[in-house]
Design a binder for these strands. Structure first.
Lengths: 209, 209
DNA sequence: TAAAAACTGTACCGCCGGTACAGGAGGGGA
DNA sequence: TCCCCTCCTGTACCGGCGGTACAGTTTTTA
C-alpha cells in the first residue's frame, strides 16, 4: 500500500511539472512514464486515463495551494491582532515567498485547466470552479473582518475585491512566465497590497496647496 | 490572391475559437479542416505546420488586441484632455465593452501560449513576450502622463502599475472563464479603476474623529 | 507463507501530425 | 486561345500517442 502511493506521487510530480510547461494536451503519457521510469501498464494501474490523472493532479494542487495560504495568513494573524495589519502582512509574506522561488512560479494548474476546459468532464470543471470560489470566500472573510473596523475610502464590493487578489495572482503568473521575469509576480502582489492599504488605512495628512 | 486570403482567415477563425477552448495541444488539425470544410492538403498549403499556424494566430490576435486598445483609449482622449480622467474613462469603456460580450471573454491567446511554452519555438515565445512588453509601454505611457500632473498618494513604480492593468485583465479572464461568470472580468477592470482613481485623485475631505 | 498489491511485457487499435506527390479547377495575362 | 499561377483535392504513407486487453511476475505486507 505504501509503495504504490510513492510511485503515484512520483508520477504526479513529473506530470505536474510537464503540464505546467506544456498544458494537458501537450503532455504525453509516454513521456511521463519515460521520466518516471515506469511502464505504460504501470501508469494505467494508477490512473484509468488522462482525465483521472488530471483530476488527481488538480485536487492535489488545490489542496497544497490552500495549505500554503492557511500557513501564511495564520502566521500573519499570529503577529498582529488587527485584521488589516495581518492581511497586509500576509500579502507581504506571500510576496516574499513568491520572490524566493528560484525559477519563478511554475504556473497555476487552475489556469491550465481553464484553458483546456472543453476536453475535461464536468466534474473537473466543477472542481476548478470551486477552487476559485474558495479563494473568494477565503479573502472575502478576511476583507469583511477588515471592513468591520475600517470603512473603505471608496465603496467596494467585498467579493469583487476578494476576486482581485486571485486576479492579480493569476495574471501576475502569466506575466511573470511570459516575460521570464520571476520577480514580476511578487511585485504585483505588493501593488495589490498598496491598493488594500490605501483603501482601508486612514488618510495620512496631505500637504495643503 | 483574394480567395486564398479568405480561406486562410476562415481557418484562423476556426482555429482561434478552438485553441481558446482547448489549448494548442488539445486542438487537432483534423478537427480544424473538418469544421473549415477544407482538406488536409489544403490546410498544409496555407500553414507549413502547427507551429506556423500558432504564429499566424498569435500575431493576428495581438494586432487585433492593440487595435481595440488604440480605439478605446483614443476615444477616451477625445472626450477629455486630462490624462487621469481619460485613463479612468478608458477603463470604464473597456469594462463596458467586456461586459457586452454575449458569452464572456473567449480567452487570451497570450495566456494560452504562456501555458504551452515549451512546445513552441523561440520566435513565438519572443512574440508573446513583446506583446506583454507592449502593454507595459502602452499603459506606462498613459500613467507617466498622469503622474506629471497628479502626485501618487503612495510611491509606486510606473512599470509595475502598468503591469497591474495586464495582470487584472489576464487574471480576470481566467476567473471569468473558470467561474462561468461573464461579468467578473468587467468588474475586475472597474476595481482596478477604483485603485487608479484612489491613487491619483486628490483626497476628499474625511470626517475627523 | 500466502494473499494482495504493484507492477512488467506484449500485442493491438484508431486518431493525429506530418510528408510526399500527383493532379485538377479556375482565373488572368500574353 | 493557351499557358501559368494560385489554390486547392486525393491518395498513400509514416511514426507517435492514448487507450485496451490480458497474461504473467515481482514485491510488499498481513
Amino acid at each position: 500500500m505504501r509503495k504504490g502511493e510513492e510511485t503515484r506521487t512520483r508520477i504526479l510530480d513529473v506530470a505536474e511539472a510537464a503540464v505546467l510547461q506544456k498544458g494537458f494536451g501537450g503532455t504525453s503519457i509516454e513521456e511521463l512514464i519515460a521520466e518516471t521510469g515506469i511502464t505504460k501498464s504501470g501508469f494505467f494501474y494508477h490512473f484509468r486515463d488522462k482525465n483521472e490523472l488530471a483530476k488527481a493532479l488538480l485536487n492535489r494542487y488545490i489542496e497544497n495551494d490552500e495549505r500554503i495560504y492557511d500557513e501564511i495568513f495564520s502566521r500573519a494573524r499570529d503577529l498582529t491582532d488587527d485584521p488589516l495589519q495581518s492581511f497586509l502582512l500576509g500579502l507581504k509574506l506571500l510576496s516574499e515567498l513568491l520572490s524566493d522561488l528560484p525559477n519563478g512560479h511554475p504556473g497555476c494548474l487552475v489556469a491550465t485547466v481553464c484553458y483546456y476546459e472543453r476536453l475535461f468532464d464536468r466534474e473537473i470543471q466543477e472542481t476548478n470552479r470551486n477552487a476559485v470560489l474558495a479563494w473568494r470566500r477565503r479573502f472575502g472573510r478576511m476583507l469583511r473582518d477588515i471592513m468591520e473596523i475600517y470603512p473603505p475610502r471608496e465603496p467596494v464590493n467585498v467579493d469583487q475585491l476578494a476576486d482581485m487578489v486571485s486576479s492579480v495572482l493569476e495574471g501576475g503568473i502569466v506575466l511573470s512566465k511570459t516575460l521570464k521575469e520571476p520577480n514580476t509576480l511578487a511585485e504585483q502582489v505588493l501593488m495589490l497590497r498598496t491598493f488594500v492599504k490605501m483603501l482601508f488605512l486612514p488618510v495620512a495628512e496631505m500637504p495643503r496647496a
